[in-house]
Design a protein around this nucleic acid. Sequence first.
DNA 1: GATTGGTTTAGGCGATCGCCCAATCCAGGT
DNA 2: ACCTGGATTGGGCGATCGCCTAAACCAATC
Lengths: 224, 224
Amino acid sequence: MRPDETRAKILAATDHLFGELGFDATTTRDIASRSGVNKALIHYHFGSKEELLGELLDDYYRRLTIALVGAMARSALLEDQAADVADAYGEFLAENRTFCSIVQREVASGRHVERLVSRTLPSFRAAAEWLARLAPGAPGDLELAQVLTSVYGMIVTYFTYGRVLEALTGQDPFCPAALDARKRHIRRVVALLIREMVAAPASGGGESPCPRSTPGTPRKRRGS
Amino acid sequence: MRPDETRAKILAATDHLFGELGFDATTTRDIASRSGVNKALIHYHFGSKEELLGELLDDYYRRLTIALVGAMARSALLEDQAADVADAYGEFLAENRTFCSIVQREVASGRHVERLVSRTLPSFRAAAEWLARLAPGAPGDLELAQVLTSVYGMIVTYFTYGRVLEALTGQDPFCPAALDARKRHIRRVVALLIREMVAAPASGGGESPCPRSTPGTPRKRRGS
DNA sequence: GATTGGTTTAGGCGATCGCCCAATCCAGGT
DNA sequence: ACCTGGATTGGGCGATCGCCTAAACCAATC
């Protein structure tokens, strides 16, 4: 077997297992048996379990960035761009449900936040400039950071809570019709928010609450 | 030391550690050393690590329900009730940040979904009836399940992604001023959504996508 | 003061973890 | 035919996991 084939098989198994069980509950032996390779090969190719997760996340963020940038270029109208990017995000999560679980878990643990931030910061800055251009004088309670957080939350929560929603509504939230309904809903809310931001009078913006609390000590995973 | 004191100390330590490290990465020895009790006492009082998490979650949901019901009764106006409940949810999460992390992780793993659903279902049904009364003919893309999911996502995402937001914005998202700003934003969006739902023409509702996919097999934790 | 029953303790069992090692395999260059 | 170096293998090391056991502790009861 070619070396990159081995790597790909390990990554695929890792993706599935980390998504289902989580990093901590998945053993390297699980990954080895699921991918059909010797367990020593995992450390040979990736160094450690931690670095394996790192490569997996890097791969996801690379593809996500491509998808979002592509969606951004789809329309020339600023109003449509927002909904297009939101759509693309939702579609990416729908096609990569494990990614959603993995990120959610890592964020909850405060681990890999640096990676997530470094990958997200450019998009965040771009979206900020973009929104500032669209609605230069949005009021404080429709500040761009607030709106971005809300829209992001609307998108990801649907997927992270998919199983809960299924139990609550009795319907499969990931079937094409349900995904389409969700997409329409998000487009509607995004349009609503943008309309409101643009129409709102330029109030005194945000009064800049407090500086950051802790000096940003990254939490370490146990045993490293 | 009185037995219930011991239990309380164990639960407090468990809460902190599960919130910071997660269930899997926390050992019963960690809990014992942090709470200052013998490690065998954990199993004496709670049976197993799993049941310990169960009692912790039960306690949280009990208090959360009280908080939400209380908020519901604060105003007689339907429009205000929605924002009040959203406020109460946000305040509860602000005061119980570990709860947010724990739930997020469990949901991502598909574990304890039954518990979460059984605790959430009454509130969900109540909110559904309530919203149906408020906006009997909301259009499909403002369906109550969609709106509920979105508002819920807006609230919880702010807390689960707190550390990310801090790195992105350079400000402490949990200081009083920031929490208040977030609260005002959410109130605004909730008001916006309700206004839109009420004003919208009664379209053909949801066309009921698909039945549930899997017959609801709960994922089991490893080694149980 | 002996007894009782709930509570606490130190110690350890079996299983499993991530990771490492020496040996082996094998395709490509000489 | 020989050599070389990356890829692969089985085996195992030290550490740590959740949980259990037998003994000790201790206030309340008679």
